[in-house]
């Protein structure tokens, strides 16, 4: 399993109720259901991935986070997880609001555009950065709204969303991935 998923799992509380938004093939959900809580659901847009989730015995709903999160009642989950897809939405702000409405807490991970490799790439090569977390070319990337860890933290502060990030400038320079718990 991806290191990111272990990190996310460490943030979850035992026997809590969890919704994994954009759960992919269900790798994280499966780990959660076996180790943390059986009460875990997924929302996924890809039909192929849904088939993989069903084969793993996971409960998944086909849907698009940008419009289908609205069917879930307020605070109906303890944790809502959004892993590395925030930047791919047409309206990330709306999605963040929905995550915070549906979940008591939301765990959001973002590929950090402020990482030193990304910065050097742009500075010296003068081309759009391609890294492990950002493997696509500018013309075929699904990422519409790239941001840095600093951008995201600043955004949350401005919107009065609770977020914790010590040593922000350091983290923003050295982390390829930002993993945050946010709450209203």
């Amino acid at each position: 399993m991806k290191k990111e998923f272990f990190k996310i799992s460490e943030l979850l509380e035992k026997d809590s109720k969890i919704l994994d938004v954009g759960c992919g093939d269900g790798e994280l959900m499966k780990y959660i259901s076996e180790n943390i809580t059986e009460d875990v659901r997924g929302l996924e847009i890809s039909k192929d991935n849904i088939q993989k989730c069903i084969a793993k015995g996971l409960t998944v709903i086909e849907g698009d986070a940008e419009k289908d999160l609205q069917q879930f009642p307020d605070s109906s989950y303890d944790f809502v997880i959004l892993s590395q897809t925030l930047q791919a939405f047409l309206d990330p702000e709306k999605v963040i609001n929905e995550l915070l409405r549906v979940g008591r807490k939301a765990i959001v991970t973002i590929p950090n555009f402020g990482h030193w490799k990304v910065r050097l790439n742009l500075l010296f090569k003068g081309t759009m950065p391609i890294t492990e977390n950002l493997p696509n070319e500018w013309y075929n990337t699904p990422n519409l709204h790239m941001c840095t860890i600093k951008d995201f933290v600043n955004y949350c502060n401005r919107r009065k969303i609770k977020i914790d990030c010590a040593n922000l400038s350091y983290v923003n320079f050295f982390s390829e991935l930002g993993i945050f718990i946010i709450e209203k």
Binding site: T59, V60, E62, Q71, F72
Partner: peptide, 18 residues
């Protein structure tokens, strides 16, 4: 049907088959 079940937190999965 899925929405009605989700609204009350029931265990529901859903897929639209191509």
């Amino acid at each position: 049907i899925v929405i009605a079940l989700n609204a009350i937190g029931k265990d529901v999965g859903f897929v639209e088959i191509n």
